[in-house]
Simulated assay, not measured.
Amino acid sequence: MPTKITLVIDNPDDPTAFEPTYAQIDSTARQLPGLRRAESAKVWPKEDGTPTPAYRTLDLYFDSYEDASAAVTTETAQDLFGRLIGSGVPFTGLFSDIEPE
């Protein structure tokens, strides 16, 4: 079954300073073996000025759970998660079964 890995990246202390790091994270993620499609998004600011629940999302699409699981065991994934952890910005990773439309 098609599988998506979603990375939900919390709000950094300094979003402007985080952007170059995020560009490297995004670029590295797009090199994962078996990746079929990647979608990067920035969460819209709230109209009332309160903090958003997250800063960015990165969706990584694979043909199967097995492909996604294999991808996260590679050196590319080590680099990707090393960059995420090294940024100091908390994140959540989710594996999801993509349901047919």
Rank of each mutant, 00 (worst) to 15 (best):
V89Q: 01
R83N: 09
V8K: 09
G49K: 07
I98W: 06
D59K: 08
G34I: 06
G93E: 08
I9H: 04
R36S: 14
G93D: 03
E39T: 14
T6P: 02
R30F: 05
I85M: 10
V72N: 06
D14A: 00
T50G: 07
K42G: 01
P15K: 00
E99D: 04
Q24D: 15
A68V: 08
Q78P: 00
L58E: 11
V89P: 02
T74A: 08
D59H: 12
R37I: 03
R56L: 02
F18S: 01
N11D: 01
T92N: 09
A41W: 09
A17I: 00
D67E: 14
I9F: 05
R83E: 11
G93Y: 01
R83V: 06
P2Y: 01
Y61S: 14
R37H: 13
T6V: 14
I9E: 02
E19G: 01
T57N: 03
P12Y: 00
T57I: 14
G88A: 09
F18Q: 00
V72S: 04
P45K: 07
S64A: 09
T73C: 04
L32Y: 06
T21H: 13
T16P: 00
L58R: 03
P20D: 04
G49I: 03
D14V: 00
Y61E: 12
I5L: 15
S87K: 11
S69L: 12
G49M: 07
A38P: 10
D79T: 15
F62S: 12
T6K: 09
Q31Y: 03
L60D: 13
L84K: 06
A17P: 00
P45H: 03
A70F: 05
T50V: 09
R37A: 13
T28S: 11
P15L: 00
I9Y: 03
R56A: 15
D67I: 05
D97Y: 15
L80M: 08
T52K: 07
E19D: 07
D13P: 00
P100N: 13
D26R: 14
E66S: 07
P53K: 07
T76K: 12
E39F: 04
T21E: 09
R83G: 08
T57S: 08
G49E: 03
D10P: 03
S87W: 10
F91A: 10
R30V: 04
G93C: 07
V72E: 05
Y55T: 00
Y55V: 00
K46L: 14
L35A: 08
Y22A: 05
R83S: 09
P20A: 05
T74R: 13
Q31V: 05
G49C: 02
L32G: 07
Q78F: 08
P12C: 01
A71S: 12
A41G: 14
K4M: 15
D10L: 02
L94Y: 15
F62K: 06
P53F: 04
V89K: 01
G82R: 12
